[in-house]
């Protein structure tokens, strides 16, 4: 035990050196750049999808990109707030939470989607869908009263925030009271799997992730019935900490908009059409929803 503690302490001293280099007040130019992703789906698979982006960034920024593995949406928020993550792919909801804790966190790019079963082509938004199995007896929202549903993560937009906010408004009572049991699956794909296994009766999932699940063969489009659809939600933003040096920020943005094989591959992986610049304005609405929720 002592040995372990001493080792940790030694590591900490080494880390301290690099951290101390970034003096407070000045802009930060971290090397390596610490990147993280919210846990929309299987983290390993998700990381594989983002490999081209990481290669492009390393090329463009001339430094190593270290990936911070997280266990939940909240971990990314926490990381950004605690300056331990520099660049992240977030959901609108989690961005909103992070922004509420640290004003300097800035969204800068998102992407328009290819069309899918549930996602309109070239759209800049998606929806949260309440889905049930087509073979089930649930035909209307009311049928789900007191039945078990699956959410994704408390900080997920389409799988947590929107259902609680918008759906609750639609049924006129808090989600937790309307349904029987709420289970957090930890990922959109897992929600779909749980539904397929009938571990839950219904699930709130993002339309884009449902399309992905269909593409991945987790479920067939015909097996799904949509009972409710949220108002459009802007696509996930990439965000960086506000303390990063402007040159670094510009380089990062540049990496997204350079037409390289890596970025084309990246778009293919994301089923995106193109990357689109974005500002906090796009997420203002969702942030308001979140704020209302918190009150």
């Amino acid at each position: 035990m002592k040995l372990i503690i001493r080792t940790i302490i030694t590591i900490l001293f080494l880390a301290q050196g690099s951290l101390l280099a970034a003096a407070p007040g000045k802009c930060e130019d971290p090397d390596p750049l610490r990147f993280s992703l919210i846990t929309r789906k299987d983290p390993i698979k998700q990381l594989e999808d983002h490999r081209p982006l990481l290669r492009q960034l390393e090329k463009q920024l001339g430094r190593r990109i270290s990936v911070v593995q997280v266990s939940s949406y909240g971990a990314v928020i926490e990381g950004l707030v605690a300056n331990s993550i520099d660049l992240a792919s977030m959901g609108p909801g989690s961005y909103a939470i992070a922004r509420s804790r640290d004003e300097s966190i800035t969204p800068f790019v998102t992407w328009s989607m290819q069309g899918g079963t549930f996602v309109k082509a070239n759209s800049l938004s998606y929806n949260s869908l309440l889905i049930v199995l087509a073979s089930s007896t649930f035909k209307r929202i009311e049928d789900l009263r007191s039945h078990n549903i699956s959410l994704t993560d408390p900080a997920s937009t389409s799988g947590g925030v929107i259902p609680r906010a918008e759906f609750s408004k639609a049924v006129g009572q808090p989600l937790d009271d309307f349904v029987g049991r709420v289970t957090y699956s930890g990922g959109h794909d897992r929600s779909v799997i749980a539904l397929g296994k009938r571990q839950v009766d219904a699930a709130f999932v993002a339309s884009e992730h449902l399309d992905q699940a269909i593409r991945d063969g987790l479920v067939k489009a015909t097996e799904i019935r949509v009972l409710w659809e949220s108002s459009p939600i802007p696509h996930d933003p990439f965000v960086y900490r506000g303390k990063l040096c402007p040159e670094l920020k510009a380089k990062i943005r540049g990496a997204f908009f350079s037409d390289t094989p890596e970025m084309r591959e990246m778009l293919r992986n994301l089923k995106g059409d193109r990357f689109v610049p974005v500002t906090d304005d796009a997420y203002r609405q969702i942030r308001e929803v979140m704020l209302r929720e918190q009150k």
């Binding site: 301290q16 997280v70 971990a75 926490e78 990381g79 605690a82």
Partner: peptide, 17 residues
Amino acid sequence: VENLSSLISGDRAFNRA
């Protein structure tokens, strides 16, 4: 504490210090 936070950020089990 700040340093501890960055240390913890590598630990997937803990989020905030």
